[in-house]
Design a protein around this nucleic acid. Structure first.
Lengths: 246, 246
DNA sequence: CCAAAAGTGTTAGGAGTACACCCATGA
DNA sequence: TCATGGGTGTACTCCTAACACTTTTGG
C-alpha cells in the first residue's frame, strides 16, 4: 500500500445535494465477490488520509477528486471507531482483501458537505466512476457497506440540528432563489409541510435575506421574485449577539 | 512503546464537574524542561487508544483510570487532526521526546463527560496524580498543552448546544436537587441570570421533573423542596414527538 | 381561458419577559 | 430578631399557528 497514507484513519464524505425536489446523497457503487457470488452495494466516497495532510484537507481532496468541486460548505461529523466496523459482513472482509488494504481496523472521520444540484449546476458536475446521486429516502433502503448507514443517520441528524440555527439552506440553493425554493428545502429536510404565509412573514423579518429586482424566467406560471442571502448582514447581526433561528 | 497501542490515534477526556458554584474541568499538571528551563502547564487526561478497544471504550478507560468513575454521561466531540497539533510549541516537542512517543502526528478524538461534584460526591472521588479541578473560566487563562484550548472551546460550545435541547443538567446534579440548584446550572453554563419566577413556571410545565415529599436538611435558611428527574417520563414524552427545550 | 404557482392579512392562543414581596429556618 | 435563600402572581408583549382567495404568467 501507498506509504504516504496513514493506515488506520480514513475520511468519508457525505455529500448532500438538493435538486429542488429531493435531498440527495452521493454514493459509490461497489461490486464484491463473496462465496463466488457477485454482490452490489454502495458506500460513501472516502479514502485513507495522507501522512502529510490535515484531516480537513483530506476531506477536501476526496470531494475534489470525485466531483471537481472546491470551496463548498463542509463540516466534520465525528469519528466512528468500533473495532468491528470493517469486518462485520463477509462481503466487507472480501473487499478489504481485494483492494489490498493493510488494516482490519480503520477509524473513519466522516464529513458532510452541501451543494446545489439545480439545473446548470447539475450538468456541470462530472462525477467519477460508479458515483451517483440518490435521494436520501431511497439511499436508506439500499445495501450500504460497513457502518455507512449509521454514518448517514448521524449526518442527517446533524444536518437537521444545524439547519435550525445556521444559514445552511443557502449552501443548497443557487445564489438567487425564490422563497418557495427556500421553503421547499426546510420542508424536505424536516419532512414536514410549512405554511406559506407564515414562512414568508418570518423571512420578511430577516434582513439578511435580500429581495432583488429580478424574477424567474421561463416558468409557465407567475414568475417568483428572487432573493439572495447576504452573509455580510448575517455576520454583522450575529456578532451583535442576535439570536438566530430560522 | 507499548505494541498494543494504535500509534497515531488518541482519546482526550474533557470532564465537566459542577460543584454548585462553578463549572469545573479536570486538568493534568505537566512539567517539561525546555532549553534547560522548567515549564508547568496543563492538559486533558488522555491516552493513545488500544488496538483491541472501541473508541468509546478508550474514553471510558481513561476516565476510570483517573477517577475510578464508571457509567457516567459521556459523548464524543469530534476529531482534531491538523498536522502540527503536537509540535507547534517547542515545549510540546520536548515532551513528546521525553515520554518516548513514537509519532509526531496523533489525531485525537476528545470526549466530554458530566459529573456531579457536590459534597459527598466530591470527597469520594480519588484523583490520579497531578489531576485537579479548575473552574472553566480560570482554565481558559492557564497555559494548556497542544491544541487543548481549542478542544476546550469546542467542548463548551457543544455542551451549551446540547444543554438547550437535552436533559443534561441532571447529569451534573445529585439525584435529588432543588430548583435553585437546577437554575444555577443554566446560569453558570450560559453565563446569564435567569428570573426565578419565570424559571419555576417553565419547570412546573415539565412533567418529568418530579417534586418529592422531601426537603433540604442542615441549611440555615428556609429549606428547599427537592425534585428528581424521571427519565422514564422524559423518554415517553420524547418518543411521542414532544419537542423538548428547557 | 386554463393550469400552475406566486403572493398576500387577520385573528386567537400561548410563550416569554419584567417585576416585588412574604416565608421558613438556623444561628 | 436577623440573615439567608425559598417561594409565589400578574400584566404586557411578541411569536406562532390556523386559515382562503386573488394575481400573474405561459400555453
Amino acid at each position: 500500500m501507498d506509504k504516504r497514507l496513514v493506515p488506520n484513519v480514513s475520511v468519508d464524505s457525505v455529500v448532500f445535494g438538493f435538486d429542488s425536489i429531493h435531498l440527495n446523497i452521493l454514493l459509490i457503487g461497489r461490486s464484491i465477490v463473496e462465496d463466488s457470488v457477485l454482490y452490489h452495494d454502495y458506500k460513501f466516497p472516502g479514502d485513507l488520509i495522507r501522512k502529510d495532510e490535515d484531516l480537513d484537507a483530506s476531506s477536501e481532496r476526496i470531494l475534489k477528486e470525485l466531483t471537481g468541486l472546491e470551496k463548498i460548505y463542509m463540516k466534520q461529523l465525528k469519528a466512528f471507531g468500533t473495532l468491528d466496523r470493517l469486518v462485520k459482513r463477509p462481503r466487507d472482509m472480501s473487499w478489504l482483501i481485494s483492494i489490498d488494504h493493510p488494516e482490519r481496523r480503520v477509524i473513519t472521520i466522516p464529513y458532510y458537505s452541501l451543494i446545489n444540484l439545480e439545473k446548470n449546476a447539475k450538468n456541470d458536475l462530472v462525477l467519477g466512476e460508479n458515483a451517483k446521486w440518490v435521494p436520501v429516502n431511497e439511499a436508506k433502503k439500499l445495501p450500504l457497506a460497513f457502518d455507512h448507514i449509521e454514518i448517514l443517520d448521524f449526518a442527517l441528524e446533524t444536518l437537521r440540528n444545524e439547519m435550525r440555527t445556521k444559514p445552511l439552506a443557502f449552501e443548497l440553493l443557487p445564489t438567487k432563489f425564490s422563497l418557495s425554493q427556500l421553503q421547499k428545502i426546510y420542508e424536505v429536510i424536516f419532512e414536514m409541510d410549512l405554511d406559506k404565509r407564515n414562512f414568508r412573514k418570518k423571512i420578511a423579518n430577516l434582513s439578511y435575506i435580500v429581495p432583488l429586482n429580478e424574477k424567474e424566467n421561463d416558468v409557465s406560471h407567475r414568475p417568483a421574485k428572487l432573493y439572495m442571502f447576504s452573509r455580510d448582514v448575517y455576520l454583522r447581526l450575529k456578532s451583535q449577539n442576535f439570536d438566530f433561528t430560522i
